[in-house]
Structure formats: C-alpha cells, structure tokens
Amino acid sequence: MQDLGIRVLFMGNNFARLMEGLWITIRISLIAVALSIVFGILLGMLMTVKNPIIRALTKVYLEFIRIMPQLVLLFLVYFGLTKSFGINLSGEVSAVIVFTLWGTGEMGDLVRGALISIPKHQYESGEAIGLSKWQVYYHIIIPQILTRLVPLAINLTTRMIKTTSLVALIGVVEVLKVAQQIIEANRYTVPDSALWIYGTIFFLYFIACWPISLVAKRLEKRWKTA
C-alpha cells in the first residue's frame, strides 16, 4: 500500500500544534481589528472635518498605508524601529502595531465613506429640531451608518486574517512556521509531507475565513435597502 503523507498530521500532537499556530494569526488579527475599529471611527470622523491641515495629514497617512505592501510596513516596524530607535519589539507586537495602523486606515476610509453618504440635510434637520451635535450623531447618523459599516468591518476581519499570514516572515511562530518545523522533523520518515501539510493549511485558512465572508455577504444583502 502506498504510504500516504497525510498520516504525518496525526502523528504526536502535530495537528494540535498547527491549530495553535493558526490561533496565533487569528488572535493577532482579532486584536488588530478591534483596535482598528476604534481608531478607524476616530480617523473617519477626523477625515470629514473641514480643517484643511487635518484633511491633508489624514489623506497622506491613508495613501501611504494603502500604497505600501503590508510586508514592507512589517519590515519597517520590526527591523527599522529596532535599528534606528533601539526599540526592540517582538514579532507579535510589531504585527499588532502594523495591522492596527493598516486597519485604521482602511476602516477610517470606510467610516468616512459612510459619513459622507448621509445627506447633509439630516444633520441640519436634526439641529433644527433642537438636538445637540452629540444627539444628532447618536440618534440619527450612527444607526444609519452602522448597517453599512458592519458588513464592511466583518470583511476587513477576513482580510486581516489573510494578511496576518505574513507574520511568518518576521519570525512569529504561527501556522506556516509550525508547518515548516513539522515538515523538517519528518523529512526522512515522511518525505512527501509538505504537500499534505501545506494543503491542510490552505484549507484551514479557507475554513477560518469562509464563514466570516458568508456572514458579511448575507448582512450586506439584508441591509442593502436600509
């Protein structure tokens, strides 16, 4: 009988280790998403401010973050900060910082888009009937932009999970690194393990992201009319 490489998955605690590795990427992305939503809402509100200096600054920030590949940003924080400023961050912390910076930019732009999509007369009518600025946001604007933002924020989560796979390249031991370790350890006993292990990771990512994308798509469809 042909020796199947997939058995390497079930040797020892290999599968559990892979899942642990996957959890590390997911944890990094969840922390980064949570922070990005908070900062993104602030950035989005800043971007609708009329002050030209704030506008220019936020615009430059957004463009830079969007144009630079995330891997370059990771390198800048992980290698650059250490060398130039002597700040020694672990791979995971730099990853959280970078993905928060990136997520804030993306989320900020989404919030800005949602805010300017609300017609101006709604702000004005709200104030005309005597609501304070805060009440206008709380009772009128936020409920309306939430339905638009939630699916997009969920989508951002899947993008974040996918992009965090890059942290393997700055030395964080996540699912790809664990996979490499397992493959190296079994190089002689199971020579074709690479095919199976990498195939498994492919599907692990798919299983992690697909349900989230489906939820986002469904919510988007349901709330479209709102």
Partner: peptide, 8 residues
C-alpha cells in the same frame, strides 16, 4: 478569496 497568497 478566502486564502492568503502566501499559503497558496
């Protein structure tokens, strides 16, 4: 759409 390029 649901898998990262790196893993592919």
């Amino acid at each position: 759409r649901n898998t990262p390029l790196l893993v592919q």
